[in-house]
Design a protein around this nucleic acid. Sequence first.
DNA 1: AGTCCCCTGGAG
DNA 2: CTCCAGGGGACT
Length: 260
Amino acid sequence: MPELPEVETMVRLLRPRVEGAVMGAAESADPSLCDAVRKVRTPTRVERLWRRGKHVLMRTASAQWIVIHPRMSGRLVWGGQVEEQERTRVRWRFSDGEMRLVDRRRLGTVVVSETAPDLKLGPEPLGGLAWLPKQLSLSRAPVKAWLMDQRNVAGIGNIYASEICFRAEIDPRRPARELQRDEAERLSHNISMVLREAIDSRGTTLADGGYRGPGGELGEFALQLAVYGRGGAPCLACGTEVRRIVQSGRSTFFCPSCQR
DNA sequence: AGTCCCCTGGAG
DNA sequence: CTCCAGGGGACT
């Protein structure tokens, strides 16, 4: 489910409750998650909570790192005393509530380590993209696949990859190395624009329920999706039918007229 | 780059 | 029933 903007949103909502707070023992009924979670020496203060790519990290006073990856359907929420109605996989106790990993499909992972984790991720896309044109020129992969490869740039997933290509007016099937200078610059510009706008509207929400903040509030970015999920519908810019194709096993949506 | 896999659930 | 899903790792 979550890509960079959704993960950033959940981290921003959780940070005020979690950072600096003392965390007690975690509970999980999932064997794999339980094994990871019980390695944390508790109680311990959470010194920092942050995002890297699509991962959520915590640094504890017990000198450990906790890495949570929501994958397709996971999300971290703050819960009070209210009984959860959804699939809670892990509960981290705090004095005034708990942080929960809710994950319908159980694809999410939790890893606890004693040393700084190597997530094997490329640079953060919001930290400046001056390096991007050169890196693009080194790859034969289709632009959309390149954007989604976390080793190239961290945090872009299937929805935003399609949206970014649309805004940049670039055919997602084009080999990365064949982009011209101005096209690479358009791509850079729109990576920043799309992700920032998505974060500003607190992520996206699709029909499956998608992301919901701890208070149940919905992300608003779905209203701004120009091509994702709109196969067969008219392009918002030119009216041409939006096409859906499959690239490396994932749906890609694009306007064959606007995107060259 | 493609295929299968990990899971669950909604839509058609 | 089949197909699809915002991710990603293993293995062709």
